[in-house]
Simulated assay, not measured.
Amino acid sequence: MPESIAPAAVAAALTELWSPRVVAEVDDSYVKVARVHGELGWHAHDREDELFLVLKGELRIELEAGPVHLSEGELFVVPKGVRHNPVAVEECHILLVERKSTLHTGGAVTPLTRSLEEQLRPVEPRPRG
């Protein structure tokens, strides 16, 4: 039987920061959620746009043309080839829509870079306390 997905609840259950998890597929794209805090680092996706939707909190997306500030419920699409750096001063939960070919941190590899296999892992319940 088909089941609905509550992206905000999945994001809240994540235990790792900057480690998106795939929650759905739409044609050749993945829908992902993540808990973020701090900054991911400058990178670009040469062939793919990237949609950010804030589920909880606030996110600043730094661009060379100037920052974009997103509050809960707001979204922004980073066009393909545009260098950007997502930053969350406080913990923030986001939903991402990206083509399946999109590399987490584009051509940049950092300690925060996650492989597609890592992003496809099941979500472990977040410890209470």
Rank of each mutant, 00 (worst) to 15 (best):
S115H: 00
R60I: 15
E25M: 08
V109C: 08
D49V: 02
L51E: 11
E58H: 11
E118Q: 02
G57K: 11
L120P: 02
L95Y: 00
G57W: 10
G107N: 13
R121H: 13
A65V: 11
E90D: 15
D28A: 13
E91Q: 10
T110L: 14
L112H: 01
E25S: 13
L103I: 06
V89W: 05
D28G: 04
R99I: 03
L70V: 07
P20E: 05
G38K: 03
G66W: 09
E16C: 02
A8S: 12
N85Q: 13
E91Y: 01
T110H: 02
D28Y: 00
L63S: 12
A12F: 05
G107R: 01
F76A: 04
A11G: 08
E48T: 15
L70W: 05
P111M: 12
E98L: 05
W18S: 09
R99V: 02
R35H: 01
P127E: 11
C92P: 01
P111V: 06
V33I: 07
E90M: 01
L112D: 12
V33R: 00
A11N: 04
A6T: 15
F52E: 10
V87D: 08
T113S: 15
G57H: 06
E64P: 07
V26E: 12
L53I: 15
L112C: 02
L96E: 12
G106T: 00
A8D: 11
S29G: 07
P7K: 00
S101K: 06
A65S: 15
V78R: 06
E98S: 04
L51D: 07
L70N: 02
R114A: 13
V36Q: 04
D49F: 06
P127Y: 15
G38V: 05
A6F: 14
Q119L: 04
E64K: 11
P122S: 08
A24I: 03
G106Q: 04
G106N: 02
L53C: 09
E3L: 14
S4G: 14
G57V: 05
E74K: 13
D27F: 14
G81K: 08
E74C: 08
A65D: 15
V31C: 00
A65C: 08
V23A: 09
K56I: 10
R114M: 12
V23I: 15
N85F: 05
R126M: 10
I94T: 01
P127W: 14
R126E: 12
A108K: 13
T15I: 10
H84K: 05
A34S: 14
K32N: 03
R126A: 13
P2D: 09
R114F: 14
Y30C: 07
A65F: 02
K100P: 10
P86L: 06
P20M: 04
L70G: 05
R83Y: 03
K80V: 03
K56M: 06
V77N: 08
S29L: 07
K32V: 08
A65L: 07
K32T: 05
H37S: 12
G66T: 05
R47N: 15
E74V: 03
G38Q: 08
V77D: 07
V26H: 09
P7F: 01
E90V: 00
L17K: 11
